[in-house]
Design a protein around this nucleic acid. Structure first.
Lengths: 202, 202, 202, 202
DNA sequence: GATGAATGAGAGTTCATTCAT
DNA sequence: TATGAATGAACTCTCATTCAT
């Protein structure tokens, strides 16, 4: 019976991830339950409120992106190529839907979230630093710059049938990656950004 | 009383612009009315439904950004500097809130919107082409690339007290502008994007 | 200027009469004003609230039907024919919309209304009695029986494009008139009904 | 819990039937819910919009009247008496509130409604024809003449505390029934009316 | 543990009526 | 005086959440 329950939980998170990406974070939770093929009360049993569900999705996505970064680290080829590969993977994992979920509802003190976030940061940082040490990426940027900009550039636009704008996004992400290349094209305002910035002090 | 009515209309559009930027396109219309200092029915007299109000805001913002572009055109200085100045101005005008409003609710056949959009395109195109002809910007990008990416990079994040993330955005926009610089840093997928893309055929 | 004001008042009552008959007594008063070709505030100047407007319409219709009855009285031909002619005329005057307006909103103490009602009763009673005295109509019915049933049978049905059902109504009114004929086809429950019944004590 | 849900549905239809008859088809749905003793959202779960609720009520009433006709058919006594008994029963079932609901909101293509309507027609037709064959009722009338006129004559008048006018209605219905008696008292305009007329072609 | 149903709070929209020109 | 505009109350419908089976 526990296997069944776990499978339900998985299906709920998956359904929520898709729907959040397609229709935004405001989708009716009954809709999520329907897509997951469970009753709504089952959803509430697993995630007492919308915040808990969002946290579940955010962690899931974050962890999968961290895995991608870890895999990119193991890639022995050109460091910049590895970085680009990671970027594509992150987009596939729907990183574009991530930032709004985090800023809108995640509790930044929540230890599980902090752990996921830090793990993500460690691996992406390694991928980035390796490219910087190879002289391929300017040194005045940090992991938060990469991930936040990437998230924004691939962020879904409401009303677009989920994917309609992706061809454009690929161009714009490429332009951004060109802007990351060493030597620095211009001086950047502010300081390099890390993921802790997401919970900025007010 | 016509003067009074017009002033009310202005106040409603202004309030909506702010609230759409701060809280997204789903803000309660009663909230917009309250912020504008009018009764809710006054809002509905001027804008029969949410779509009409969104259209009003979109046109207002589009027109103001087009004016900025026109002014940048008159700037006799360095063409790339003029482009950067325009970009800053567009961000100030809250271009970041624009794309979602357009894709979500604007009727792409609506003649007034088409007129505003085309006017914007003409002026921004001129600013961009001038920089390209001066050899400062790569030639495989078009006005839609600039505006859509800019819009996404400056798009407000829900739950952030409107501005909290602007320091980061400035960095990321700068990186994107660096990516725009000639010579081209890499080959871009797809073709240069114009604003007609916003209404892409299905 | 008074002539103008009076003409406005007339136009408002006419518009209201048509709309009440077509769409029921709940039509928006702004709609009445539009149909009358005046501003809504002009309507409110003439009729402080919906009740006053309804009273105006009810009186107008009542008076016109009373005139028809008066004319039928002057008709020297067959008394039953005269009665039938009056009935047709009353239907043309939209008697079918009358009863609901009266029961719903008219103040039964209002002296002007009482005067109109009594005048109607006097004339219709005369038409009816004449037919009864000629032996054409059963004697156990009174003016209220005739007018209330007639009103119900010709009462507009909402959603019907005003007139779609009139062919049927003509049949049913004819059947009712046949039922009125002497000698009495059956014993009727209760007592003959007069128009005072419209304000029945509770 | 299905039993409970069904009971709720029943209570909602009953409450709606009463309120439609008392106050017309425009009663606030919240009022219906209150009268039924359920929350408003329960009403909306069962009947997604007002049209669905009206359809539910119309079907319920139609079916009950059809049952009455069926029972009248089984009555071995005088055919005209049986017809009169059916008429009384139909009035008790609130046939008077039926026509407006049908013309105002029912979708005349809706298969369930068509089925109910046709079933009603079959039984009432049988009752009527039997009286005609016994020589008691004129032969130039059909089931639609009977039911539509009956509906209009017993149609509730707004503002009357539901019943105040029933004594009169009984008289007028009796007069109408007298008019139905053979031999025909006069020639009727048009042709006999069936229930299909309710959806008349435009 | 899982489910369908119930609920109340809230959002969009309409309308009778009042105000300001 | 006549008008267009403003207003708040009311109504329909949705949705997060809780309950009963």
């Amino acid at each position: 019976m526990r296997a069944d329950a776990l499978r339900n939980r998985e299906r709920i998170v998956d359904a929520a991830r898709e729907l959040f990406a397609e229709l935004g974070a405001e989708v009716p939770l009954d809709e999520v339950a329907r897509r997951a093929g469970v009753g709504n009360a089952t959803l509430y049993r697993n995630f007492p409120d919308r915040g808990a569900l969002v946290l579940g999705v955010v962690q899931r996505v974050t962890d999968r992106i961290a895995e991608r970064a870890e895999r990119a680290l193991g890639d022995a080829g050109d460091p910049f190529e590895a970085l680009c590969g990671f970027v594509s993977g992150a987009v596939e994992e729907r990183i574009g839907a991530l930032c709004p979920l985090i800023t809108q509802t995640v509790d930044h003190e929540h230890p599980e979230w902090v752990a996921s976030r830090d793990r993500l940061q460690v691996f992406v940082d390694a991928v980035l630093v390796r490219a910087q040490e190879a002289g391929a990426v300017r040194t005045d940027v940090a992991v938060g710059d990469l991930l936040m900009a990437l998230s924004q550039l691939s962020r879904p636009l409401p009303g677009t049938g989920c994917g309609r704008f992706e061809p454009f996004m690929a161009r714009h992400i490429q332009l951004f990656l060109d802007g990351l290349r060493a030597p620095a094209g211009s001086e950047l305002p502010g300081s390099p950004v890390t993921l802790e910035a997401l919970r900025q002090p007010e």
